[in-house]
Amino acid sequence: MQVTEIVTTVFLALGCIISVTGAYGLLRMPDFYTRLHTAGKTDSLGQLLIFIGLVFVTPDLLTQLKLVMVALILMIAAPTATHAITKAAHLHDLRPWTKGDPGGEP
């Protein structure tokens, strides 16, 4: 195994762990805002790590560029979407969960 491949493996493993953790959080967290919290962060970070990992093993420049581009688009789009979702939820008076609430549903 070459060095690049080891680096890639490490990045991929990290990205993987973060993504799955985020997904687990999305599943287990008690209310919308907390889920948003886990999902929004892990999404961006996890995908970024995986894409970075892949760049190392990609031989040609065009593909590397494309990878960077996808990562960039996601870096722009995902927060935008998260922002918009939050705003919409807030506008519609979705109350955050506080300790002691049973389920956190409004």
Binding site: G15, S19, G22, A23, L26, F32, R35, L36, A39, D43, G46, Q47, I50, F51, L54, L67, V70, L74, A78, A81, T82, I85, A88, A89, L94
Partner: peptide, 20 residues
């Protein structure tokens, strides 16, 4: 909003998955 969030997160995962 949960659904939107999940859909969105699924979208991101899908993109990574396709690349992989």
């Amino acid at each position: 909003y949960d659904r939107i969030l999940a859909t969105n997160a699924l979208g991101t995962k899908t993109i990574v998955f396709v690349t992989l």
